[in-house]
Design a protein around this nucleic acid. Sequence first.
RNA 1: AGUCCCGUGGUGUAGUGGUUAUCAUAUGGGCCUUUGGAGCCUGUGACGGCGGUUCGAAUCUGCCCGGGACUACCA
Length: 562
Amino acid sequence: MNWNEPKFDELAKQDFLRAEIVADLRAGRYDGVHTRFPPEPNGYIHIGNAKAIWLNYCIARDFGGKFNLRFDDTNPIKEEKEYIDSIIRDVAWLGADFEDRVFYASDYFQQMYDFAIDLIKKGKAYVCELTADQISEYRGDYNTPGKPSPWRDRPIEESLDIFGRMKNGEFPDGSRTLRAKIDMASSNMNMRDPIMYRILHASHPHAGDKWCIYPMYDWAHGLEDSIERITHSMCSIEFENHRPLYDWFLIELGTYRPRQIEFARMNLSYTIMSKRYLKLLVDRGHVTGWDDPRMPTVSGMRRRGYPAAAIQDFLSRAGIAKKSNTIALEVLEHCVREDLNRNAPRFMGVLNPLKVVIDNLPDDHVDFLDAVNNPENPEAGTRKVPFTRELFIERDDFMEVPEKKFFRLAPGREVRLRYAYFLTCNSVIKDSQGNITELRCTVDPATRGGNSPDGRKVKSTMHWVSASKSVSAEVRNYDKLFTVEDPMGQEKEFTQFLNPESLTVLSDCKVEPATADLKIGDRVQLERLGYFCVDLDSAPGKPVFNRTVSLKDSYSKIQAKK
RNA sequence: AGUCCCGUGGUGUAGUGGUUAUCAUAUGGGCCUUUGGAGCCUGUGACGGCGGUUCGAAUCUGCCCGGGACUACCA
């Protein structure tokens, strides 16, 4: 590959990561680009992880390189098969193509073990018998240098022997560790004789019961990248201070050395981006699971109805930099709306039905009207929508005493029923409590299809559904998971800011019959309401729709200002 | 408190010595409309501060201020 081609100048301009990579390639430090996403299978991946995935994948793709999915599965206590499966599924769904390259750090445990032996033989690692508390105490703090472990200078043969016996399961958990012998006075805490192995008699979700010593992340991570011949190891900034340690290990071992470059992780407003706390929401039942449509997880967003392409677009717009950032949720929603506006077929559905009786139509009247499936895409064609004497309209679309700027139906007012007729409300029927139960209306037969031959205009077009020829549905309206932009940056605990209105279930909604053909996961627009996705809880004849995102609504904005 | 990293409209970004400082989103106004959607036009809005170098600084430099990361046998 000729890295001097102009197209690489263009890539270098995209962001500082690509700029560094182009520089490396042109300097001959690497022959190509091979990246990776290294999740720990201790939870489902979220939109913050998705950024790392997308960036690593796109960079590899842009440079004609490869992208690996590799599980950083070095702590069996927190890891589960369910998480492994979900991550593989979610990364693939996102569109980051790892082909057949799914790897496991646990498959490298033997190589790592052998490397550790090398280090002990070189006098660069030793078995330490301090307790966890003692190790912490000996480490010192930011202002105080640490002091050496009494085991630091034990004979190499002794360390070799004990390390082997650690591996053979001769010692209890926590009784011994293998430590690198580096510098207890380093200003970088990571260099104060970091632990390489701990004893853990635990079954591993991928490696089974083969091991009872497990490598620490700092020891394993750089080796994994090295073993896979990763060229550029892009990670978030908290690993900046770990880079000298990874380099130290690789230099001491004399093995292949990838280049690590750090970028800032992404935060999203009105949610949290921590697997640990997302797990807490799941465990405490604040949400229904990792794939709850309110969760910022990839699984949650998929179930919510966010298209992968919209998420990719969002991730690309978020940019790459080193300063801590919180991107507005509105940007994500904008990307989702933009995609769905182009691609989602339209239907009519009524969330809060209000009965309308058309007095100038016979009881058995049925008329099939033509409706456009997607005004943004003529190729989507048209469909027939049944029109009958009794209809449902949206309760919010009627006001007995209309306020200023309310253009919809009111007594004596004429509006258009989408794709149907001009409709005039003549009277309001109420029950004994004074609740409106029904509207008596008439239709102008000359306006069939929605236009008046006399050129008469109406201020509003409303959606509707036939009372007898509609399908009952459940609609789950979702809103922000939290009430504040930064739930973690508050005085009180973050769960105090969970939005009690993040989910509203409407069980008596009516949707037009053409929705019967929809399958789980299908995304549609219910006209004037928003975009919806058919949930997996749907049953035959009883669909469940998740509201993906509402349509932008300038009327509600006017109202909100009051 | 120590080490490291980072400061451009509300938010996220572009910019690498000379531009009316980019784009997106959000937001105000208008047009259009058989979705109060979409689309179109348009307005408001930023270089953290103070010095230095230079004819000229968002860009180089010094100090200050502000923000973030780091003291797990977690990753």
